[in-house]
């Protein structure tokens, strides 16, 4: 075998093997990844709707809602996903909303690509807890009613505007004080 054929053959073997290894690992790991994603979704719903034990998934006007229920089956609030534009890409979050009181019950960041140590701190409870008990009619303006993070103003602004624009749609479907 001359050296050129050998080069081609070796590269071919490497590529085929690498493809096979990747396909095999993906097949093996993907069910687990999906399972984790489902678990994380459940955990985030329970986190933003304190006191619930189970939830029901409802599709309305193209949006997905998770209605939280306690032990006795009483409705405790609605969780929904919202997306905001951050510094490093979209910020996905789970928001808890109590239509009876017209207030938010919690916020959890699901995924984001903000700068570690700066914008990524929007995940920390010190930032997310400020949205607990916030009225849906608040302006959601950074530095006014939304505390920002030192060195990172774009990420908190993305969170605030993401929640606000999602709430505009959600409060039309589930108005404050209305039934759900």
């Amino acid at each position: 075998m001359n050296q050129y054929t050998r080069m081609i053959v070796v590269l071919l073997i490497f590529s085929v093997l690498s493809g096979a290894v990747l396909a095999f690992s993906y097949e093996l790991a993907n069910p687990k990844i999906q399972e984790q994603a489902q678990k994380n979704l459940e955990a985030s719903i329970k986190n933003v709707l304190p006191g619930i034990t189970k939830y029901e998934q409802v599709e309305k006007e193209g949006l997905t809602f998770y209605i939280g229920l306690d032990d006795q089956g009483n409705k405790k609030g609605i969780a929904f996903k919202a997306t905001g534009q951050g510094f490093g890409g979209p910020i996905e979050m789970m928001v808890g909303y109590d239509p009876k009181e017209g207030k938010l019950t919690g916020l959890q960041i699901l995924s984001m690509a903000e700068t570690p140590g700066l914008g990524a701190r929007i995940q920390e409870p010190t930032f997310t807890d400020q949205f607990k008990g916030k009225s849906v009619n608040d302006p959601f303006e950074p530095k006014k009613d939304v505390q920002v993070i030192t060195g990172a103003t774009i990420s908190p602004a993305g969170v605030a505007s993401g929640i606000k624009s999602a709430l505009e749609k959600v409060t039309k479907i589930y108005p404050v004080g209305g039934d759900y």
């Binding site: 490497f14 590529s15 690498s18 290894v21 990747l22 690992s25 993906y26 093996l28 790991a29 993907n30 069910p31 687990k32 990844i33 984790q36």
Partner: peptide
């Protein structure tokens, strides 16, 4: 490059799953 990229992707997948 093929070896390193394959290995990083495998680590990424398994760590995410397990």
């Amino acid at each position: 490059i093929i070896v390193i990229a394959t290995f990083v992707t495998v680590v990424d997948l398994f760590m995410a799953g397990y």
